[in-house]
Design a protein around this nucleic acid. Structure first.
Length: 373
DNA sequence: ACCTCGACAATTTGGAAACT
DNA sequence: AGTTTCCAAATTGTCGAGGT
């Protein structure tokens, strides 16, 4: 299990987020060195009683010695039996005012544990599993204050779970911490508050499929996620070489690698970086090239559209900048790219990399425009 | 001869307490 | 702080056995 304990400065922000007149029981189910509870104690003094749980027996022993006034239990929060048997958890079930939480983030890839919470069921990152453990068994009257990796907050596959949580809690992201806030790691995290009571009066996110398609002339654009990882290009010498384009080439302009023509996409393409940071869209105006899996290419239908698409992208720069998400490296999902483009009045059509150019996806009247263009 | 199902392979896609 | 690499689950494609 990872042990990235909460730095003092972060813990203080968590305590500061709690209401001024707060009092009652506070539980930290992943207490570690006790930084969060210490900060709460410093702010609220004798108005609070403090409970902690940790899986690490050494940590628990140390904390019990250092804080004789706290109730500290040793248990694995993800083991139902051990959890429910622990003194701290039982006390919290009886009555709890607030839960403070800095769960383990440790996670790579798209996996995670399959969990259920109310109407949600699916795979989630460990941090979310910790949060759900709390929510499914405890009813903190004031709320939950959790430090979560941005990936857990923003990941597409966690949205149905957040939806289920929002039905019962008002969820707010109170603060984004600096990526350097945790010692020995660079990670994007946020302070998220869950207050009992649903948050459905908050402005809902506009769903893409709820938007009216704009049919004023053809504004079709194909969205292509590159499919070739850099390492696979380095490992092979193609017999039919075409330029290989990677995020590094967006600024350098001149491709410095080649890959097999079988993997190439037909131009003209406007390329944006899927992973990394937004840089001005780069136009590849002639011929074909192979796209790295860190790039997304936009392919409009005609030269006039090419210009107007570039204009749209320039205009929407700020929106694209804020659409990048992630705990570590920032990235755009295909859905996020589509949402941005649709907002600008483009019809998007995700097509496979190195496939053939597909038929126009507009409505009938606009399709005729396309053919003329 | 044709359809269905399931195992396995290949590709696609989101994502990373990362890397430089 | 900005960026690079490439992983692993999810999804899609395919192939053959067995049923109709």
């Amino acid at each position: 299990m990872d042990a990235f304990y909460t730095p003092r400065a972060v813990a203080e922000r968590v305590a500061a987020a709690m209401p001024e007149d707060f009092s009652g029981r506070v539980l930290d189910p992943a207490v570690g060195a006790g930084a969060l509870l210490s900060a709460v104690q410093e702010r609220f003094g004798t108005k609070v009683s403090l409970y902690g749980i940790d899986v690490d027996a050494t940590v628990v022993r140390g904390l019990r010695r250092a804080q004789p006034g706290w109730v500290i239990s040793q248990a694995d929060l993800l083991q139902n039996k051990a959890k429910t048997a622990s003194r701290a958890w039982r006390a919290a079930r009886e009555e709890i005012a607030a839960v403070v939480l800095n769960p383990p983030f440790s996670y790579r890839g798209n996996g995670g544990d399959r969990i259920g919470y109310k109407e949600f069921s699916g795979r989630v990152a460990p941090a979310m599993r910790f949060l759900v453990e709390v929510l499914s068994d405890l009813e903190p009257s004031v709320g939950v204050y959790a430090i979560l990796p941005d990936g857990a907050v923003d990941a597409e596959r966690h949205q149905p779970l957040w939806e289920a949580i929002r039905r019962r809690y008002t969820v707010s992201r109170l603060e984004r911490f600096k990526t350097t806030s945790f010692h020995g790691a660079r990670v994007s995290t946020s302070l998220v508050r869950l207050m009992p009571g649903d948050s459905y009066d908050q402005p809902a996110v506009i769903r893409r499929d709820a938007l009216e398609p704009s049919l004023d002339g053809c504004r079709c654009v194909e969205v292509i996620r590159g499919r070739v990882p850099v390492h696979s290009v380095r490992a092979t010498v193609p017999t039919d070489p075409l330029p290989f384009l990677h995020t590094t080439n967006l600024r350098m302009r001149t491709p410095d690698m080649v890959a097999s023509a079988a993997l190439a996409d037909e131009g003209p393409l406007i390329m944006i970086s899927r992973v990394g940071r937004w840089s001005d869209p780069t136009l590849l105006d002639v011929g074909r090239a192979v796209l790295s899996d860190c790039l997304v290419a936009l392919r409009p239908r005609s030269r006039t559209q090419l210009d107007s698409l570039q204009g749209s992208l320039r205009e929407a720069k700020a929106n694209f900048l804020s659409a990048y998400r992630g705990t570590g490296a920032q990235y755009l999902t295909l859905a996020a790219i589509q949402a941005q483009l649709e907002e600008l009045g483009w019809h998007t059509h995700v097509v496979k990399a190195s496939g053939s150019v597909e038929a126009c996806c507009c409505g009938d009247s606009a399709a005729r425009e396309c053919e003329r263009a």
